[in-house]
């Protein structure tokens, strides 16, 4: 199994808190495909810094409110 990036995210949680925004709508907002949003939510893909900023701006929160670093994943 490929090693997952040690980056956690709250994209799904924030999306649901945002009037249950659909994955497609978020994907459109940040300029990626719906499959990429799914991969981000599942932790299979770490977005570029630009997309990370776009996601945080869509939800009106800071970058670290969306993404975090999982210290346990590196041990």
């Amino acid at each position: 199994m490929a090693k997952r990036p040690p980056i956690t995210n709250r994209v799904r949680e924030l999306r649901e808190a945002h009037d249950n925004m659909s994955q497609s709508a978020l994907a459109k907002e940040i300029g990626v495909t719906r499959q990429t949003v799914i991969a981000i939510e599942q932790g299979r893909y770490s977005p570029s810094l630009e997309s990370a900023f776009r996601i945080s701006r869509v939800f009106g929160v800071g970058l670290e409110d969306v993404f975090g670093w999982d210290d346990t994943a590196e041990k």
Binding site: V32, T36, A39, Y45
Partner: peptide
């Protein structure tokens, strides 16, 4: 119709 995104 869509272009390749960053993950693609």
């Amino acid at each position: 119709e869509g272009d390749q995104d960053e993950r693609d």
